[in-house]
Computed example of a mutant assay.
Amino acid sequence: MVAPYSVDLRERVINLKLTEEYTNEEIAELLSISMSSVKKYYRQYKNNESLIPKKPGGESRR
């Protein structure tokens, strides 16, 4: 299982977006993340949602 991106990285995405100097594609390339992650984190920020990663779901193992 891959660990979620840190809150610090998510905040860096938001800060870069707020400068309006970079496109989503440039931010994704600069931080080595997907463009969908950039869009998701910015959407969460605009909707006043937490940037803290959610716990993984799915079935529990016995």
Rank of each mutant, 00 (worst) to 15 (best):
E11M: 14
I14A: 05
R43I: 06
Y22T: 03
L31C: 01
L51P: 01
K55Q: 07
I27N: 00
E21R: 15
Y42F: 14
E29W: 05
M1L: 10
M35R: 12
V2F: 05
V7I: 15
L9Y: 08
Y45E: 00
Y42L: 06
R61S: 11
L16F: 10
S50A: 05
M1I: 03
R10H: 10
A3G: 04
P53H: 09
P56D: 04
R43D: 08
D8E: 13
A3H: 11
E59L: 13
I27M: 05
L51S: 02
L18R: 13
E21G: 06
S37M: 14
V13F: 07
S36F: 11
V38C: 06
G57R: 15
V2K: 11
E59A: 11
V7D: 04
R10I: 08
V2R: 13
R62T: 06
K17L: 06
A3D: 08
Y5H: 06
S37Q: 10
S32N: 13
M1C: 04
L31N: 00
R43C: 08
S36M: 13
R62Q: 11
I52F: 05
L51C: 05
L30M: 15
P4T: 06
P53I: 09
R12E: 07
I52Y: 08
R43S: 10
T19F: 10
A28R: 04
L51I: 15
E21D: 13
I33D: 00
Y41G: 00
E20C: 10
K17H: 08
E11F: 08
T23C: 04
V13S: 02
P56Q: 09
Y42W: 14
A3Q: 11
I33Y: 00
E26W: 01
V38Q: 03
K17D: 02
K40R: 14
